[in-house]
Amino acid sequence: MIEVDHVTKRFGNITAVRNVTFHVEKGEILGFLGPNAAGKTTTMRIITAFLPATSGTVRVAGNDVFEKSIAVRERIGYLPENVPLYNHMKVKDYLRFVSRVKGIDDRNRDSRLEHAIELCSIGDVRETIIGKLSKGYKQRVGLAQALIHDPDVLILDEPTNGLDPKQIIEVRELIKNLGGDRTIIVSSHILPEVSMTCGRVVIINEGEVVAEDTPENLTAKLKGSESLFLRIEGSPEGILSTIKAVPGVMSVTTNGEGGYEVDSDVGQDVRRDLAATLVGQGWGLLEMRPIGMSLEEIYLKLTTREESEV
């Protein structure tokens, strides 16, 4: 449905997006993840035909976004990071304006309007002036704007930005419900966001795609080592040297309060040896549990590794 091929975008000397390639299938919800200023918004703006790419092509439903820009825009609903609202308008008038600009004809306008209002549950503010709405409502009005022409493709740039936890859950549910027939790209710099709603994740950093997979595979693939957490009673120096001596242990760190994190080679279970050695030397082993790498850590690992190379 969405094919982004070798897209590069330069602003003067600065390369905001470098050779980005990913495809999104019909009906898929793709999470677009990256720290701030990684090139997420730029990429989304290129997909929505707001910015032209310096090189590379983007196709939406087979149409090139640059050559058939209007055809593409008819099929895309876009919620920019800064929600584009006219603060002097009433919610209902704003949505009516958007529906006219998007070419919804008079017969269908009211029903589409009501549908969007209902989906985003903004019925109780339809007569309110947008400038007076809370951030959460504004975000939802922005979402209603993106949905109003029933687009096949939804591009949502940080849709939960600035919302309170309850609203975040609501928006997340809404995005999940919107899936199905629609193809959705959701960007975020917050991980749980993406891992909860999306079937697949593209991680972007400094303008380049650094990883692309399902959240589960990503976790498995990126696990460079197995990690264990231990809680042990005794003097840290002695414990550290004891642990290091166990075969298969790559590194060990302590938090200074009796907690230790042990990394070992992938596929090697050091738990039995570790426990036997520790107990054998008289240290009080209180706790031992494996730690899976959370998406959060992967994300940090991917995005900081890039930085250290630069």
Partner: peptide, 14 residues
């Protein structure tokens, strides 16, 4: 300034 240009430029209007 308000960013609404992004709405207009990504809507199917020329």
């Amino acid at each position: 300034r308000s960013g609404t240009i992004e709405l207009l430029m990504t809507s199917p209007v020329t």
